[in-house]
């Protein structure tokens, strides 16, 4: 295997990982505030759909290279809207968080396809967007052998995801907002008694998770597929959830996990090029994130501790 192949593998890994990182960041925020979010898949679906539609319309209206960015914004908005359902159900009405997440996946899957058929005269797929993101080389850095090609020649959304990892890490661990958010997820009544608005914090966290997962879904539509159909998002939301747990509810950890899963996927691609697939069936590579997550939970690959109050609804005034 030569340097160019390795660089190529890295590069593909980052493409795969971008959406996972973004959605996992969303998952972290939600779960750190105490709200389980297994609706990431649905939120990504909503984001991918909105991006494909908005970018297509923007392109038709002549926005040119701004179209994919409009798509990303639309994805964020749609993610936000769907996460609002989750927030209202689980925070205000104290519905079971797992059930609500399943409902989000249900409704997002159904309603986006319904809308696609409505908007594209019965077709199950949105029209292809030509104005999608293109890879951007970062001057100088991209000249470094292997990693230059691997990391510094990526889609703008990849850079965005990496920046957001830093931003959210800083927010969680350095700001007052982050301290409060984490306290709400660990011990909500402790937060309540010092005057922190628990429900408001949880709303903020869940809505941010919707935005991030929505953007995550959008990046898939705006880079790899250029359109949206029923299988644009198939399982990435759950891999992102796996990354949240594998990354121990920490943004850096989740990024590492997402990159690792992405790298496994790209090894698979490359292996097929080299005809190794007869030795390692691709299905086993697909299984990897899920198997690893179970191993982490079992304690075979380090311990992972969930936020203390994860999954528990909070009744203000009842303690």
């Amino acid at each position: 295997m030569d340097a160019a192949t390795i660089g190529h593998m890295l590069n593909t890994a980052f493409v795969f990982s971008t959406a996972l990182i973004l959605a996992a960041l969303g998952g972290i925020l939600s779960e750190r505030s105490g709200v389980v979010n297994i609706g990431l898949e649905g939120l990504m679906t909503a984001g991918a759909f909105a991006a494909a539609v908005a970018a297509f319309k923007a392109q038709e209206a002549g926005y040119g290279a701004a179209s994919p960015w409009i798509g990303v914004i639309a994805g964020a908005i749609f993610g936000l809207l769907f996460s609002l359902i989750h927030a209202v159900a689980t925070i205000t009405f104290r519905a079971d968080q797992v059930v609500s997440g399943i409902v989000i996946n249900f409704i997002a899957g159904g309603s986006t396809l319904y809308l696609v058929k409505l908007l594209f005269s019965g077709s199950g797929e949105t029209s292809l967007v030509n104005e999608v993101f293109h890879k951007v080389k970062i001057p100088l850095l991209s000249d470094i052998p292997i990693i230059g090609d691997g990391i510094f020649n990526a889609y703008p959304t990849t850079y965005l995801a990496l920046i957001l990892v830093g931003v959210i890490y800083y927010m969680l661990y350095k700001t007052a907002f982050g301290l409060r958010l984490r306290s709400v997820g660990e011990h909500p009544s402790a937060a309540d008694t010092v005057g922190i608005k628990v429900l408001r914090m949880r709303y903020a966290a869940v809505l941010m998770s919707g935005i991030l997962a929505g953007i995550g879904g959008a990046t898939i539509a705006m880079t790899t597929t250029g359109s949206f159909s029923h299988n644009t998002i198939s399982g990435q939301g759950f891999i992102a959830l796996a990354a949240v747990i594998f990354g121990k509810w920490n943004p850096l950890g989740a990024m590492g996990a997402a990159l690792f899963f992405g790298f496994a996927q790209s090894i698979n691609n490359v292996l097929q090029l080299f005809d190794f697939s007869s030795h390692i069936p691709p299905e086993f590579i697909y299984m990897l994130p899920y198997v690893l997550t179970i191993l982490v939970l079992v304690g075979a690959v380090g311990r992972s501790k969930a936020p203390g109050a994860l999954g528990e609804p909070y009744f203000p005034g009842k303690r």
Partner: peptide, 18 residues
């Protein structure tokens, strides 16, 4: 579009759960 039924089922569960 038949997907409307997914929305109906999802809504029903949503109301049952909350």
């Amino acid at each position: 579009p038949p997907e409307i039924i997914r929305i109906v089922i999802g809504s029903v569960i949503f109301f049952v759960a909350a």
